Measured scan of single mutants.
Amino acid sequence: TETAWISLVTALHLVLGLNAVLGLLLLRWQF
């Protein structure tokens, strides 16, 4: 079960990281 939790947490971190990068790019394009 630990491996499943680790994979789930890493997936969440990757998604949050991608969202942060996309958000910064969108803000930079708007201004």
Rank of each mutant, 00 (worst) to 15 (best):
T1N: 13
T1A: 14
E2G: 07
E2Q: 03
E2K: 04
E2Y: 01
E2P: 02
E2V: 03
E2L: 05
E2W: 06
T3P: 14
T3H: 04
T3N: 06
T3C: 01
T3L: 10
A4G: 09
A4Y: 06
A4C: 01
A4L: 09
A4T: 06
A4D: 07
A4H: 07
A4R: 02
W5T: 00
W5N: 02
W5L: 04
W5F: 12
W5E: 01
W5Y: 14
W5V: 09
I6R: 03
I6N: 05
I6E: 00
I6Q: 05
I6G: 00
I6F: 10
I6K: 05
I6A: 01
S7Y: 11
S7G: 14
S7D: 09
S7R: 04
S7T: 14
L8S: 08
L8K: 05
L8V: 06
L8M: 14
L8P: 04
V9K: 00
V9F: 10
V9R: 07
V9E: 09
V9S: 03
V9N: 03
T10V: 13
T10D: 02
T10L: 06
A11H: 01
A11F: 10
A11G: 09
A11T: 08
A11R: 02
A11E: 04
L12M: 08
L12Q: 10
L12N: 10
H13Q: 11
H13M: 11
H13L: 09
L14P: 04
L14G: 05
L14R: 06
L14N: 00
L14K: 00
L14C: 08
L14S: 04
V15S: 13
V15T: 13
V15N: 00
V15Q: 02
V15R: 05
L16H: 00
L16M: 12
G17C: 14
G17I: 14
G17E: 10
G17H: 10
L18W: 08
L18G: 05
L18F: 10
L18C: 09
N19K: 11
N19L: 02
N19Y: 03
A20V: 14
A20Q: 04
A20W: 05
A20H: 01
A20I: 14
V21T: 05
V21R: 04
L22T: 00
L22P: 06
L22V: 05
G23S: 13
G23P: 02
G23C: 15
G23I: 15
G23K: 06
L24F: 14
L24G: 11
L24P: 10
L24H: 08
L24E: 02
L25S: 06
L25R: 06
L25F: 09
L25Q: 10
L25T: 10
L26Y: 11
L26V: 13
L27Y: 03
L27T: 00
R28L: 10
R28N: 08
R28I: 12
R28E: 04
W29P: 15
W29R: 15
W29G: 12
Q30S: 13
Q30D: 02
Q30H: 14
Q30E: 06
Q30G: 12
Q30P: 00
Q30N: 12
Q30R: 15
F31Y: 13
F31L: 12
